[in-house]
């Protein structure tokens, strides 16, 4: 498992990182926690000539409050997210999803930015980002721009990030007081999702006033289950309501078929898990 030869740079500033990427053209790769990139390099599925390590840029790491937003630096590892009070208070769905990712070792190294930029449809961070209306802040040769999660994911391992673009931070509106749950189904306990469902509900006086439901691995990118959301709004969070709404979970999806699960089984799982996630969120 020896990667092809590459040069390694570890810039200390964002500007230097962009410059390094620009200089290398399409032949460069960013490395964050390396948890997805290193296997790719070792299996020689990619052979960049330059690897740019973002680990030396202090401003990319950390979690802060910015008015009505919680801002998470792209280089913040899962481990820190799990322990952060702002996240615990305002972004419970994110914390719930992060807790299901891999094992402790991977959570110490893997970063939120890396996970989102990697855009693995089986990855567990895309659906929560979508549900929680995350905004991706991207710095590239043309300056800095912000892309909504809904526009960020563009397909299998594909995002709005251009060649020399760096995802610098992820801005989340606060979902304070929302009831959330991330229901994950996997082959082994510490693996990616076969299917997962992230649910955030706003419940007023027993009635669901707002509902957001995201699906992991039901297409080439994270999806919102809008039909489920519509079926939930205005209803009491009962088992029957959850079940009836969940029956719509596979609508508009394009689940993959692979050795672990065929598409029809994934669709079935999406329905079952959605029902469970809604009930669990409603508590």
């Amino acid at each position: 498992m020896i990667p092809a030869k590459f040069d390694y740079v570890k810039p200390a500033s964002l500007a230097d990182a962009v410059a390094a990427l620009q200089q290398a053209g399409d032949d460069a790769k960013i490395i964050a926690g390396g948890q997805s990139l290193l296997p790719v390099l070792r299996l020689r599925m990619a052979a960049p000539s330059v690897v740019v390590d973002l680990g030396g840029i202090a401003e990319l790491k950390g979690i802060r409050e910015d008015g009505d937003k919680v801002v998470i630096g792209a280089m913040t590892p899962y481990y820190d997210i799990l322990r952060d009070d702002l996240v615990k208070q305002h972004l419970t769905l994110l914390a719930q999803a992060v807790a299901t990712v891999a094992d402790n070792q991977v959570r110490h190294r893997g970063t939120l930015g890396g996970a989102l930029a990697h855009a693995d449809p089986a990855g567990d961070l895309g659906a929560p980002a979508l549900v929680l209306d995350a905004e991706m802040v991207i710095t590239g040769p043309g300056g800095t721009r912000t892309v909504a999660a809904a526009d960020f994911f563009q397909g299998l391992f594909s995002t709005a990030l251009g060649e020399a673009d760096i995802l610098t931070e992820i801005r989340f509106p606060k979902f304070t007081g929302w009831r959330t749950h991330y229901e994950k189904f996997n082959r082994t306990a510490q693996a990616w999702s076969m299917v997962a469902v992230g649910v955030a509900l706003k419940i007023d006086g027993g009635t669901i006033s707002e509902a957001r439901v995201g699906l992991t691995n039901m297409g080439d990118r994270p999806l919102r289950a809008t039909a489920v959301e519509q079926a939930l709004v205005g209803q009491q969070a009962t088992a029957d309501v959850a079940k009836a709404a969940a029956a719509h979970a596979a609508e508009g999806t394009a689940a993959p078929s692979d050795a672990d699960a065929a598409a029809d089984y994934r669709e079935h799982l999406a329905r079952v898990l959605t029902g469970r996630a809604v009930l669990a969120a409603a508590g």
Partner: peptide, 27 residues
């Protein structure tokens, strides 16, 4: 958990530890 799967061409299709699913203590 485990099974080494071959396709019709005789290629081992789950020849990495990502797809050859060994259980861990958590399972």
């Amino acid at each position: 958990y485990e099974e080494a799967n071959y396709d019709e061409q005789g290629t081992l299709v789950n020849g990495t530890f990502v797809d050859y699913t060994l259980p861990s203590a958590a399972d």
